[in-house]
Computed example of a mutant assay.
Amino acid sequence: MEKSVRGIMVLICMAFAMSLAFYVVHGADPGPLQDFCVGVTDPSLGVFVNGFFCKNPKDVTPNDFLYKGFNTVGDTNNPLGAKVVQVNSTTFPALNTLGVAMGRVDYAPGGVNPPHLHPRASEMLAVIEGTLYAGFVSSNLQSGVNRLYAKVLNKGDIFVFPQGLIHFQLNIGSTPAVANVAFGSQTPGLITVANAVFGSMPPISDDVLAKGFQVDEKVIEALRSQFWSDGESHQYSWI
């Protein structure tokens, strides 16, 4: 009898723990409380709904859900030979609360979208024109290495970059290339490895970087001198 009671108590405790876990997970990521929330920059022009300032629904028109210019070829005349056009909740307010974003990447021959990561979203890349070499690097494995997953992509191919992992694309063809990217967040964010390591403000100590990369400080100084300007690197930012 005592064992039966004890078994019942264990089952009750397990059921309670499972229901609590479900509640915590469910409560951490609530769904939208309205059909849409077209973002506004001036709070006086909108209403506060579900944690965001939204354009008053009675003032929303079909034009709010239309984005034009995605077919515009990006200017790749820069040190990297690539240009990203952002379509996120900042540049397209209708995406606010919808959890998606897009982008267009143009590459000159030899152009590169340098190693970077998106802290808040996974990414799907579809090649529209050209040939790209693209890949991502895994987080640290138990063996102490980071595995590279990379492929040569042709027109019509799609490649996925998992959230938070460093990835890149390089145009290995002799003609310009174009890719469209999609994100599972309205603000995927961006950390470009070179920007973060060699271009932070204030800068990371040369001593830290020299020891971290196991090179002489003169090498770090040389790398800093090759870093592109803020005006040029800003075109690769994702808010």
Rank of each mutant, 00 (worst) to 15 (best):
E2D: 07
V5I: 06
M9C: 07
V10Y: 15
F16G: 01
A17F: 08
M18K: 08
M18T: 07
M18D: 12
S19T: 15
L20D: 02
L20I: 10
A21C: 09
A21E: 05
F22Q: 09
V25T: 08
A28Y: 07
A28R: 06
P30S: 10
P30C: 10
P32A: 15
L33S: 13
V38Q: 06
G39Q: 07
T41W: 02
L45I: 05
G46R: 11
G46K: 07
V49H: 06
F52N: 09
F53E: 04
C54W: 10
K55Y: 01
N56G: 06
K58R: 10
N63R: 14
D64Q: 01
F65Q: 02
L66H: 08
G69V: 11
G69Y: 08
N71M: 10
D75N: 09
P79Q: 02
V85T: 15
N88R: 11
T90Q: 11
F92T: 05
A94K: 00
N96P: 05
V100C: 15
R104L: 04
R104T: 14
A108W: 06
N113G: 10
P114V: 08
L117H: 08
P119A: 07
A121N: 04
M124E: 04
I128R: 12
I128Y: 09
T131P: 04
A134N: 03
A134L: 07
S138G: 06
S143I: 11
G144Q: 10
G144P: 13
V145G: 15
R147M: 12
F161Q: 06
H167W: 03
F168V: 02
F168P: 01
Q169N: 11
N171I: 01
I172D: 01
T175Y: 00
P176V: 00
A177S: 08
A177N: 00
A179F: 00
A182P: 04
G184K: 14
S185L: 01
S185E: 00
Q186W: 00
P188R: 02
N195D: 15
F198T: 03
S200A: 13
M201P: 00
I204G: 02
S205M: 04
D206H: 08
D207C: 03
V208R: 05
L209Y: 05
K211A: 13
G212A: 15
D216K: 06
D216I: 03
E217C: 05
E217L: 13
I220G: 03
E221A: 14
S225Q: 12
S225N: 14
F227L: 15
E232R: 03
S233H: 07
Q235R: 14
Y236C: 07
S237P: 00
I239V: 08
